[in-house]
């Protein structure tokens, strides 16, 4: 009986020891897996960070040291970046912001900086050219409007000549049918031709339908254009020279990409 109790007691103790041993193994394996990356970081960390980790207790010190190492690494990275920027780093970044260099922190050589500024200069030249072309188109529109007015003044006589020609053509039919009278087939044909002619001349004088047809397929509708983009777009749409027009569209694309 006692032997049996002793055996069961030993068995329970053994199980207890086994359970305890399993728990200790689990905890040690988890702590070792967490410390692996921190070890790799510790090789890059500053001496101050590593010394602080040495003074801590093993279990707590591992977590503390990993966070300190991270912050130390960040500081080191900032220090390194500061060292690379040097004393003119601030001025260069300001310059980059002022001149709109791509990637404010990117360091450019003198030639590269001049090239970037020259590119901006070229773009502004193109914008200016677009504005001038636009303005000239406006002058031409004013001129054509004025010449149209002038034609209207003298144009009162023109229908009389046209009617006279029609009358001569329809001489054999006796009294010619006036446009207001209608009825006669010949007269209605003439009216139809006249009407077509008027519409055709009217559509020629309006630039927008022609301009719309000139917009390349890859150009967006321009609803989100700012004033500069709109000016380039309008200049391109009004440009008659295909080479210059394509240059203007290219400027438009570049400008939109820059946006």
């Amino acid at each position: 009986m006692n032997i049996a109790k002793i055996k069961s007691g030993i068995f329970v103790c053994a199980i207890a020891l086994l359970l305890a041993g399993c728990q200790s193994m689990q905890s040690s394996s988890s702590s070792s897996s967490a410390s692996t990356p921190s070890t790799s970081q510790s090789s890059q960390s500053s001496p101050a960070a590593s010394s602080s980790s040495q003074s801590s207790s093993p279990s707590d010190s591992q977590q503390q040291s990993s966070s300190e190492r991270q912050s130390g690494a960040e500081e080191a990275a900032y220090d390194e970046a500061d060292e690379r920027q040097g004393p003119t780093g601030e001025a260069a970044s300001d310059q980059a912001q002022e001149s709109g260099m791509p990637g404010g922190g990117e360091i450019l050589s003198e030639e590269e900086a001049v090239a970037v500024l020259d590119e901006q200069f070229d773009e502004s030249i193109a914008v200016f050219d677009g504005m001038i072309i636009n303005e000239r188109a406006t002058v031409q529109a004013i001129e054509s409007e004025y010449s149209d007015d002038e034609e209207e003044v003298f144009g009162d006589d023109n229908p009389l000549f046209e009617e006279a020609d029609i009358n001569e053509d329809s001489d054999g039919n006796g009294e010619p049918a006036s446009p207001t009278e209608g009825g006669g087939g010949a007269a209605s044909d003439v009216n139809a031709e006249k009407g077509d002619g008027t519409l055709a001349s009217g559509s020629n004088s309006m630039p927008s339908p022609r301009a719309g047809a000139r917009v390349p397929a890859d150009i967006p509708d321009g609803s989100d254009d700012d004033i500069v983009a709109r000016q380039i777009r309008e200049a391109a749409m009004k440009e008659a020279d295909p080479v210059l027009r394509e240059k203007l569209w290219e400027e438009y694309r570049k400008y939109k990409r820059g946006q």
Partner: peptide
Amino acid sequence: EIYKAERGEI
């Protein structure tokens, strides 16, 4: 800016 850049002043 170009004048400064060409003379390494920036």
